[in-house]
Every structure is written in structure tokens, then in C-alpha cells.
């Protein structure tokens, strides 16, 4: 029974963290059609923002505004220099952001060195929950991510910006014609996407390895989650995370991690082939 509880909590953790990481990628890919291969590197920027705050001895919560500032400014710059020239060339966004990812890794290496960094757990220790000991910080993370998703969901459903983005996606020319500044909106969308990546970086920093290559971890699985969940809905995003994360957890538990990894790849291929618009599609 205990082990079932642990696996259940682990699944929840996986869905929550993957969902958080993929969110920005989904926004950028789903709304702008940009395959941002540097998405993981923005997660890295978030984690290193937390490192700066820790090294300066400042309260760790300051890492959140710092990461948003760093990712926001840098995202703005990247959109202006690179992305906006490539909206009509989707494969080229993939190539250019792959180059960008290398540059970002090297910049971090130049600033912080090649070595591993460690962020202290803000909420250390374990708590006794449902009969098992579970890391306290993860429990906190569940709450934070749940609130975050609820706010986003509400905002996107109700705010004017949400409606505008929807209008822009459904008809670019019409949106421009009715006075929506599509250039600005596209830029804000990109910035929003990379800022959520940065936020994910801050939140995950105490749990993961931190080094210039860390972004690669998040990139490829994120794309597969996107495809399985389908673009365009938060529910799809969470279900995609659940399917990919759940497959990994279940197969890894029954067999081993390598089998889990192979299953994730196989499921992704099957979805890409048979249901490329995600699990909700009717195709």
C-alpha cells in the first residue's frame, strides 16, 4: 500500500513539474509555431538566478523576480534579434534556437564555470503524508504549481489578452486589421513562454543538478509531452505530462529505467504518427 502511495505522489510530482516546464514551450510552439530548442536553457537561467540570490545571501524568494527579469529581458532581446525574422520559417526557428542554446550554455559556462552548483532546499526534510515520508519541498511545490496553473487558466479564459492571442492565432491578418498589435503580442507571447521556463528553473533548482548542460534534460521530453497532450489547452498539457511521466514511472517500476525510456520514446512515436494533434483530436 505504501509503495502505491509513493508512486501516486511521484506521478503527481512528475505531472506537476513536467507540466510547468512544458507550459512555456507549449505557448511558444502552440501560439507562435516556434520550436524553441533553447527552452531548457531558459530553465537553466532560472536556476542560475536562484544561485545568484543564494550566493549573495539574499532571501531565496527574490530569485523569482530576478529570474523573471533575466528571462524577460533576454527573451525580449532574442525575439527581437532572432525569432521575429523567422515566424514564417518554422524549421529555421528550430535551427536558430539550437544555435542560441549553445550560446546560452557557453555564456553560463563563462560566467559561472563548468562545475556543478547546489541550491539549498528551502524547505528541507520530509513530511509524513498518507503513511509515507515524502520530501517537504515537493509538497510545497505541488501547491505552488497548482495555484499557478489555476491563475493562468482563469486569466487566459477571462482576460482580454487571452482573447487577443486566440484571435491572433485563428487569423493573423484579421487580428491586425481590427487593431491588435500582432508584433507586440507575438513578442509578449514569446517573453511569457520563456519567463515560465525561468520560473520553472527557480522552483526546480533545489531538486536538480545545476550546470550549463542541464537544459538538455528538459528539452526533448518536453516536445514529446506537447505532442501527446496536443497544443492549445492546459488540460491537454497536464494529460500529456501524465501519459509520458506515467509511462516512465509504471514501466520503470515493473521493469527498469531503460525500458521506461524506450517506452516513452515508443509512445511518443505512436502519438506523432497516429494522433499528431494530441490525445483529444478526432483524427
Amino acid at each position: 500500500m505504501e509503495i502505491v502511495t509513493v508512486y501516486g505522489l511521484n506521478l503527481l510530482y512528475t505531472v506537476a513539474t513536467l507540466g510547468l516546464i512544458v507550459l512555456g514551450l507549449a505557448v511558444v510552439f502552440g501560439l507562435l509555431g516556434v520550436m524553441n530548442m533553447a527552452h531548457g536553457e531558459f530553465v537553466m537561467l532560472g536556476a542560475y538566478s536562484a544561485l545568484i540570490v543564494q550566493n549573495q545571501g539574499l532571501p531565496i524568494l527574490l530569485a523569482i523576480p530576478l529570474a523573471l527579469l533575466v528571462c524577460g529581458l533576454f527573451g525580449w532581446l532574442v525575439e527581437w534579434l532572432m525569432i521575429r525574422h523567422l515566424y514564417s520559417r518554422p524549421f529555421d526557428t528550430l535551427l536558430a534556437t539550437w544555435g542560441l542554446a549553445i550560446l546560452m550554455r557557453k555564456a553560463i559556462e563563462g560566467l559561472f564555470g563548468r562545475g556543478y552548483q547546489s541550491i539549498d532546499q528551502t524547505v528541507p526534510g520530509t513530511v509524513h503524508l498518507l503513511g509515507v515520508d515524502y520530501p517537504a519541498y515537493r509538497i510545497v511545490l505541488f501547491g505552488v504549481i497548482a495555484v499557478l496553473f489555476a491563475v493562468l487558466f482563469g486569466w487566459y479564459q477571462r482576460s482580454n489578452t487571452g482573447a487577443r492571442i486566440k484571435a491572433m492565432v485563428s487569423n493573423l491578418e484579421l487580428a491586425a486589421a481590427v487593431g491588435i498589435d500582432t508584433v507586440l503580442l507575438a513578442r509578449m507571447t514569446f517573453v511569457f513562454g520563456v519567463c515560465t521556463a525561468g520560473l520553472a528553473g527557480v522552483l526546480l533548482a533545489p531538486l536538480v543538478r545545476i550546470e550549463p548542460f542541464m537544459g538538455l534534460d528538459y528539452l526533448l521530453s518536453s516536445f514529446f509531452i506537447l505532442v501527446v497532450g496536443g497544443l492549445g489547452s492546459l488540460e491537454g498539457l497536464l494529460i500529456g505530462s501524465g501519459i509520458i511521466g506515467g509511462t516512465d514511472i509504471v514501466v520503470s517500476a515493473i521493469s527498469d529505467k531503460t525500458a521506461g525510456y524506450l517506452s516513452v520514446l515508443t509512445i511518443s512515436i505512436l502519438f506523432l504518427w497516429l494522433k499528431p494533434d494530441g490525445i483529444f483530436s478526432r483524427r
Binding site: F223, L265, T266
Partner: peptide
């Protein structure tokens, strides 16, 4: 991009 991602996943599968 779906075909591209399939080939990418196949290469990862091949590596493993």
C-alpha cells in the same frame, strides 16, 4: 514538425 520529431525519437531509440 511531426515527421521531424518522429525521426528524432527514432534516433534516440537507436542510440539507446
Amino acid at each position: 514538425p511531426y515527421f521531424s520529431l518522429i525521426t528524432l525519437a527514432l534516433a534516440m531509440l537507436g542510440f539507446q
